[in-house]
Design a protein around this nucleic acid. Structure first.
Length: 257
DNA sequence: ATGACTTACCCGGTAAGA
């Protein structure tokens, strides 16, 4: 089973590239972030024509998450939104069962400029995710909690770590909360597969960052113990970032036995 | 230290991303 996460940065703006990627790489499950489209503007019929079913949580202009599953797989939404703050209206979390695997698709807040209210929101959101993850990690079923975490976990995850020290993605508090999450028993799948390599999933639109490979790794796939046992391979579809009108993120994927 | 790109929104200027 091939499971991918892809911050597409505008569902409708990137639709041709998304369809090309689905056709080329044929993921069984594709988690998308930053749909930037209201619920009823989600291009469901196009996605279905491409051979996928979908559940999604849209929002006007910003955020938005979706889970796509290849036709033939049983896709059932479990819920949307993270518990812990009824006033939070941002669409950043959706959870579904795909056959026997639980898929949690998330778009963690960016948090810049930091410090400030946006960083406070990020910290609170990470606390809420921690609560949620504590329950999920213990399940006997396989759970994959994946998405755009907006966290650079360590120096190995940036071409030039020193450039990010004043950024919410790389603040000590951010890295610490991510580590605490892993300590619950989650495996960072890509880091597990490539313990010593600089692997990037995002490259700035500015300054020709992709051509210089000046990237960061912020899209993560976390596995509970049941899923970690099934981990086989993984990687980043860098060719998508090199294509026409690309998102600034590249699809990041794993395969489970 | 700043700015460089790109999107959505509603229609050129702002807000947001990371």
């Amino acid at each position: 089973m091939k499971i991918a996460t892809f911050n597409i940065n505008g569902m409708n703006a990137r639709l041709p590239g998304l369809l090309q990627w689905l056709a080329d790489k044929s993921p069984d499950v594709a988690c998308l972030q930053e749909l930037k489209t209201p619920h009823d503007k989600f291009p469901l019929s196009t996605i279905e024509e491409a051979g996928y079913s979908a559940v999604w949580h849209g929002q006007k202009s910003w955020n938005g998450v979706a889970i796509l599953a290849k036709a033939g797989l049983k896709l059932e939404e479990i819920g949307r939104g993270l518990p812990g703050d009824p006033a939070d209206e941002q669409s950043r979390y959706i959870e579904a069962r795909v056959d026997d695997t639980i898929i949690c698709c998330l778009y963690l807040p960016n948090g810049n400029p930091a410090p400030g209210p946006k960083f406070d929101y990020k910290m609170a959101w990470m606390d809420r995710l921690h609560e949620k993850a504590q329950g999920l990690v213990q399940l006997k079923e396989s759970v994959v909690m994946l998405g755009d975490y907006n966290v650079i976990p360590g120096d190995l995850d940036a071409k030039r770590p020193e450039r990010w020290v004043d950024d919410a993605l790389f603040f000590p508090e951010t890295k610490e909360k991510y580590q605490k999450l892993l300590e619950l028993g989650w495996t960072d799948a890509i880091r597990k597969l490539y313990p010593d390599e600089k692997i990037f999933t995002y490259w700035d639109y500015f300054r020709n960052a992709f051509a210089r490979d000046s990237g960061i790794r912020i899209d993560h796939l976390l596995l509970n113990p049941a899923a970690a046992e099934r981990l086989e391979t993984g990687g980043v579809d860098r060719d998508v970032r090199a294509g026409e009108k690309p998102s600034d993120h590249a699809p990041t994927w794993i395969t489970l036995k």
